[in-house]
Design a protein around this nucleic acid. Structure first.
Lengths: 300, 300
DNA sequence: TCAATTGTTTTTTATAATATTGTACAAATA
DNA sequence: TATTTGTACAATATTATAAAAAACAATTGA
């Protein structure tokens, strides 16, 4: 009826683990020290100590705490199952949106999402609030949330924004010092592109991964928290749409390989202007592809 | 112990208002229709109708609903006071952070913020979740939130990001059609800049407003939801820091006026390259100013 | 017969209540 | 005097639940 005691349970087991490393009848460190070890507050530690005393694991009077016996496996508390990783919720959510081709202006039910993603409702609320900053979702007047994304306007503005960021990245690469790791990565990418170009007839599906690697390498030169945050979302969206638009995939990928190689050429020649121009061409192609993939979905 | 009935109360008063426009003994529209009028679900409408019947305002049997008497002021329900505008929470929060010079890595107490801003805690949670997308705040491992912003690294990256966006905007302005409203605005800005330049000795404080107008005009040409979202935060932060860094303010503002005029000159000559270059110089100055204002605060 | 409306049930959302956890400070110890 | 513990209090996370929305079934009237 209030917050869970997972923190206490985890701390208890962790302290138990720590005690196992101690010699028999060893003194137990101070509460503050234990709190540091378990990464929780003293309140939780005191609960743990109380339980340990009850179970006859330790003696505890004032600041005199001693280990009475070695902890056994059955001393541990059971943890509430299903940690349900909150971290990659974003990945899973976008995956869901794109994979099931959830149309724009779909009402999102927090209750339903909570079930499908196995995540508590308040976590989702927080997550959706974050996404609303990207204009991907918004609050509905009658309550709840709504998926906005993936209209034509959204795709255009996303592409444009991506272009702005990526052209900036390209410029920065051209100015990167010779010992920057990006140059080694680009050399490797050039080789891999050439190899795939040879085997394009059979392996054209492989391009998707290469494309992601290429753009990641370019953008890795830019160290900026704001840009990095957006890049994650952008690359995910583009990546998926490319994977699913199967029309003329082979031809498209062959063309993209050449575009990538042109960019690499210009970069290695340290010709920022040419690199920007080549990147601009490539980004225009990408935009067209993204838009046409949306059109196909509209028809299907 | 659950959600408030504000929605019902507001709907009731709105329906009352609608009934006042009706002739005496008029039939009441269908529940669905009323729901549309009040912007609320049928469930709420039925609660409203029940209350109206109890108060002898209407007769209600099945789908036969009639007005019995004209609603009077005392029929209205009292609304829970203090709407506490959720909309400009962002403005007020950033204002608070910057005005009180809240240092980086300050733990934020949702309870305390809730009191100072007169906003429910869950609204704040949602808001902070949104800000965490901008890297301004983050979750602490032991629970709660923490203000990250306004370290040197943050200022640098923010400035860099601003430059990327603004240089893009400048390029777009240079390509804007002659009948675009930005040209009229720039002409006006030129005049205002020249006027202030004349009176700089006395009115140099006025520059802050002019600066905001100038950058807003440039950026208004870019129609992009992602960029617009960021611009709001960026301009607010720069704006405040300029206001408070009083060192050499007059000299700084005089220089900035000239920089602005150079940009306007290049733009009106449709010389995108020169405009970008001038903008780049101006943005570099801005960055330096922002950084030095942080340094002053560190010392103070 | 069928579209519109109402009656009823189910589902979802917003939010107050609250157990758990964190934190500050006083008292005790060594 | 610096640690450590005891105690009180405040904040947070999470639940429980009333309010609202949505879905569905039954009814009505043209």
């Amino acid at each position: 009826m209030a917050r869970s005691d997972t923190r206490y349970r985890e701390a208890f087991n962790r302290i138990l683990g720590y005690c196992e490393t101690l010699p028999p009848e060893a003194p137990i460190p101070s509460e503050t020290r234990l709190a540091e070890i378990a990464g929780v507050s003293r309140t939780v530690i005191r609960r743990c100590l109380t339980r340990m005393e009850e179970r006859g694991l330790i003696s505890w009077r004032g600041r005199d705490k001693h280990l009475l016996r070695q902890p056994r496996p059955e001393d541990r508390i059971a943890l509430p199952e299903a940690p349900a990783d909150r971290r990659d919720l974003e990945q899973r959510f976008l995956d869901w949106v794109l994979r099931f081709d959830v149309p724009a202006n779909t009402p999102l039910s927090v209750a339903e999402l909570s079930r499908t993603f196995d995540v508590p409702q308040y976590d989702l609320k927080e997550f959706l609030a974050g996404l609303s900053r990207f204009g991907l979702v918004s609050r509905r007047p009658q309550g709840g949330w709504m998926l906005l994304g993936f209209t034509k306007g959204f795709a255009i503005e996303l592409s444009d924004f991506r272009s702005v960021l990526e052209l900036n990245a390209v410029t920065q690469v051209a100015e990167a010092p010779v010992d920057h790791p990006v140059w080694a990565e680009l050399a490797q990418l050039r080789a891999d592109h050439l190899a795939l170009k040879q085997a394009i007839d059979g392996d054209f599906h492989e391009f998707s991964k290469l494309d992601e690697r290429f753009h990641l390498a370019i953008n890795s030169v830019v160290r900026n928290r704001f840009i990095a945050e957006f890049q994650k979302v952008i690359s995910l969206i583009f990546h998926y749409h490319y994977m699913w638009d199967k029309s003329e995939e082979k031809h498209r990928n062959a063309a993209a390989i050449d575009e990538h190689l042109t960019i690499i050429d210009a970069l290695e020649a340290r010709d920022a202007g040419a690199a920007r121009e080549a990147a601009q061409r490539h980004l225009r192609t990408s935009k067209t592809t993204l838009l046409s993939s949306l059109r196909h979905h509209d028809l299907g």
